[in-house]
Amino acid sequence: MDVLIQIIASGLTLGAMYAVATIGLSLVYGSLNMLNMAHGALLTLGGYICYATITHLGFHPALALIAAALVCAAAGLVIYAFATLPLLRAENFETNIFIATIGIGSIIENLMLKSFGPYPIPQPLGISGQVVIGNVHIPVQNILILVTALTLMAAVAFLLQKTRTGRAIRATSMNREAAQLMGVRVGQVYAQVLALSGALAAVSGIMISSIATLTPVMGGDPMLKAFIVCVVAGLGNVYGAVIAAIVLGLLEAATQYVFGVRWSFATLLLLVILVLIWRPYGLFGRGQVVRL
């Protein structure tokens, strides 16, 4: 019984980490058809800003979280102004922005390396304590990450479905030209989505670094896993991404226990291949390119 509890606890922890990393990435792809390869670096930036504001500026953790979200939102706006906007005017936007954001991510990572050094640093924002079920100790921080992922998903859903901004985002994602003709300021929508994605990345980075520590390259693995989750769920489907993340986390933990840890990543990739063969548009995606 303890083993089963441990697998579920580990699976939910992994799933929650993947989910928080995936929400921002999925939102940007779904809304803008833009695969933001700097997303992992934005996670890193958020984690470090939180660390710096608490440790060096003495901020309250809640204020530090807000500060990190604001800085990463601003970074999202910078990406919009200096990469997205110029490339939108050219052909092959999807390919060009993919390459450009790889470069931006590399710049952000190296700025973190120069600013904070190469050593792993513990994230000061976190909740101590454990919940004991049977003989399994589950850190409260892990539960917080799961709650955060679900809260962010609900918040994004509310924004997209119930607000004027959300309608503009959905209209732009369905047909950019038509939305423009209907009076939607497409440029403004892109800026809003990238800023929102940046803020979400900051929260994700803080949560992930709280159990995986801060390093300048910490965003790489969550970014890779988030991409896998997005592909399995259907690129751009935020709700599907969260559900897929949690299911994949549970699958990974079970694989690690039953077959060995070395098979877990291979199993994820095998699943991606099977999904792409069976449903190329993802488990929660639609055959037609209509997102969100």
Binding site: A9, S10, Q256, R262
Partner: peptide, 20 residues
């Protein structure tokens, strides 16, 4: 004799085997 993937932040399944 267990091979872990990198980075390894969640050790739960491996620890479950050790504890068994």
């Amino acid at each position: 004799f267990e091979t872990v993937s990198v980075p390894a932040s969640e050790w739960g399944p491996t620890l479950a085997k050790i504890r068994q």
